[in-house]
């Protein structure tokens, strides 16, 4: 049997057992933390698709998280608080924002690309800070958790956890297919040798632009989920520090590995949570750990299952 095909199955099965285990502990707290970890895993995986697979180091990924969250908040306020509707709005909104800004960012290369994604992220951040209709800096509270296709099924924290897990698993399957597709092959080739790709007759820009849109769409779903988990949205969802956290999670997990991004996000959030119960300076411990993993080369994915 193919080991690579088995790892994701085991991984998601283990995650499905978390709510059962949580019953033996502080259930509400544990479920909340675990759900948050899954949502960030989805966001980190969406970034991994761009960063690891496409070679595009976006420093503005939190903007898509914020767009998704605000889409949920706006719909919730005007009575459209259904998860499917929220996702159906957030996805095109984030994809459009990604296409519009990446069309400009992608013209810059290397560190200039990184800086321009940061700049667009900051623009969106300050836009929501100044948007007093949605609470500006203070953010906005969602009255109730979103419904799912008309049912109030998601009101249960456990059900909401499974909704987040389903989104993560679907996202994983989707991205895994895309990475292995013709499109994904071109994208991976562009990361390795853009000049060669052009000499074959491909225009890298189009493929990278599409990759940005796909990544943004998935990250926006994470934003929708996060808004509903917290019942609250504020510009703090989309700070550049948050974008940096997402980069840390993907690098920690192993650049290029979708499963690694999930592992990286889970490890990062749980470690921060654990360390912060003992000390205020969690960065002091996570920093060296990150350096170690980065030096080892292939991240947690390399340690746990030896590669992608």
């Amino acid at each position: 049997m193919n080991w690579r095909a088995v790892v994701p199955g085991f991984g998601f099965a283990a995650l499905a057992l978390v709510p059962l285990a949580a019953r033996w502990g502080p259930e509400a707290y544990a479920l909340n933390l675990a759900t948050r970890a899954l949502i960030f895993a989805l966001a980190a995986m969406s970034l991994q698709f761009m960063l690891g697979c496409g070679g595009l180091v976006s420093f503005g990924q939190a903007a898509y998280l914020g767009l998704g969250a605000y889409a949920a908040a706006i719909l919730a306020r005007y009575g459209g608080g259904d998860l499917l509707l929220e996702a159906g709005t957030a996805i095109p909104a984030a994809a459009l924002f990604a296409v519009a800004t990446s069309a400009i960012s992608l013209r810059a290369k290397g560190v200039y690309y990184i800086m321009s994604t940061l700049a667009f992220g900051q623009m969106l951040y300050f836009f929501f800070v100044s948007l007093s209709a949605l609470g500006g800096d203070d953010g906005v509270t969602l009255d109730a958790r979103a419904r799912l296709a008309g049912t109030d099924w998601l009101a249960s924290d456990r059900a909401f956890y499974y909704a987040a897990l389903a989104a993560l698993a679907l996202g994983y399957l989707l991205l895994d297919r895309i990475v292995g597709s013709r499109f994904g092959r071109v994208l991976g080739a562009i990361r390795q040798n853009p000049l060669r790709v052009r000499a074959l007759g491909f225009e890298p820009f189009r493929y990278q632009l599409a990759a940005c849109a796909i990544s943004a769409a998935l990250c926006a779903v994470a934003g929708v989920l996060l808004a509903n988990l917290n019942s609250f949205v504020s510009p703090a969802f989309m700070t550049w520090q948050r974008s940096g956290d997402l980069i840390v999670m993907t690098v920690l997990g192993g650049v290029g590995s979708l499963g690694g991004a999930i592992l990286g996000a889970l490890a990062y959030l749980l470690a921060s949570e654990l360390v912060s119960t003992y000390t205020e300076h969690s960065g002091l411990w996570i920093g060296p750990a990150l350096v170690l993993v980065a030096l080892r080369g292939r991240g947690l994915a390399g340690l746990v299952w030896g590669g992608r």
């Binding site: 297919r177 292995g180 597709s181 013709r182 499109f183 994904g184 092959r185």
Partner: peptide
Amino acid sequence: AQARAGSSFRFFARAG
């Protein structure tokens, strides 16, 4: 060969 075989905007079938 893929570069000469029509659109590469195909997202699901395994290229390999």
